[in-house]
Computed example of a mutant assay.
Amino acid sequence: MHRPVQRVGRAPRLTRILVSAAAVPVMLVAAGCSSDSGSGDDAKKSAGSSPDAKASASASANAVKPAAYAKLPEPCSVLSKKTLGELVPKGAKSGNEGKSDDVEARGNCYWSSLDNNGVQGSQYRWLNVALLRFDSDSRGEGDQLAHKYFEKQVKGAQSVTGAKSTKSQPVSGTGDEATAVSYDLKKKEGSFKQQTIVARVENVVITLDYNGAGLAGEKTPNAADLLKDAEKAAKEAVAAVSAANQDRGATSTSPSKSASPSKSASKSASPSKKS
């Protein structure tokens, strides 16, 4: 069965150069006389230009805002039974969670459904939801890192080998930003209608893949209907991410303006693909 390919990326170093102050010649006004006038000011200037003080100031300037979300929901629980019954009617209870070495940073779950009508053919559906969370670190804020990954995922969905009639469009009301990519893919089993929705909510990126096909002579499913169902599921997944962080006191719930995976998210979990 067709399962779409999952697309799952140092900041410039700052070099500090401390320049010592040039020595200023001292003019003696009168022999045998000396003065400590201004020594207090000089001490303050010296303290203010010390390496430790400069490092502290630099650290404050380079501080990044903490990521809004600290955890992910369980991947197989992001969609309601009702939604699963609509998208994968014969496989709503067959959720398979992918392996993850850090469940708070990445995870995925997939379902497959085969409505076998005997000699009249069968309707096949496959659904996958992948979650990837980004922490704020030395490379930037979590939502900015997530935005970059969001863009990478969209481009990946738009350039699948063998895809025909590829179309992209924004999806409203789904996180801070979301894009739907639709295309047709011909396989030996039949003609598949693929819908991929990539959504970002704060520092989390959700990639939802949903495809369907009519097998053994069964009618090919309507792409518009599949897209509508996929958009509904993506909205639920976004809501599940927010809900999972309510008890952890998310630092922000306002939409981010913009978004490479964090160190903890560089190894994204994804299901194995079969042609």
Rank of each mutant, 00 (worst) to 15 (best):
R7W: 10
L18D: 09
V26F: 05
A30W: 00
D36M: 11
S37E: 05
S39P: 00
S39V: 02
S39T: 10
K45L: 14
A47F: 02
A55D: 15
S58Q: 14
S60M: 15
N62I: 14
A67D: 08
A68K: 00
K71I: 09
P73E: 05
E74S: 13
P75Q: 04
V78C: 03
L79V: 11
L79G: 12
K81N: 11
K81V: 15
K82M: 10
E86N: 14
V88D: 08
K90F: 11
G91N: 06
G91Y: 04
K93L: 07
G95N: 11
D101M: 12
V103G: 05
E104Q: 11
C109H: 01
W111F: 07
G121N: 03
G121R: 01
Q123H: 09
N128R: 09
D135I: 07
Q144V: 10
L145R: 11
L145D: 11
K148I: 02
K148G: 04
Y149H: 05
F150V: 02
K152V: 13
K155I: 07
G156C: 02
T161K: 12
P170C: 09
P170D: 11
T174L: 12
G175F: 00
A178H: 12
A180N: 03
Y183W: 07
L185W: 05
T196E: 12
V198L: 03
A199E: 04
D209I: 09
D209N: 13
A216V: 10
T220S: 11
N222D: 15
A224F: 04
K232P: 00
A233D: 15
A237I: 00
A240T: 11
A243H: 06
A243Y: 01
A244Q: 02
D247N: 13
T253V: 00
S254G: 08
P255R: 08
S260V: 11
S262C: 02
A265H: 06
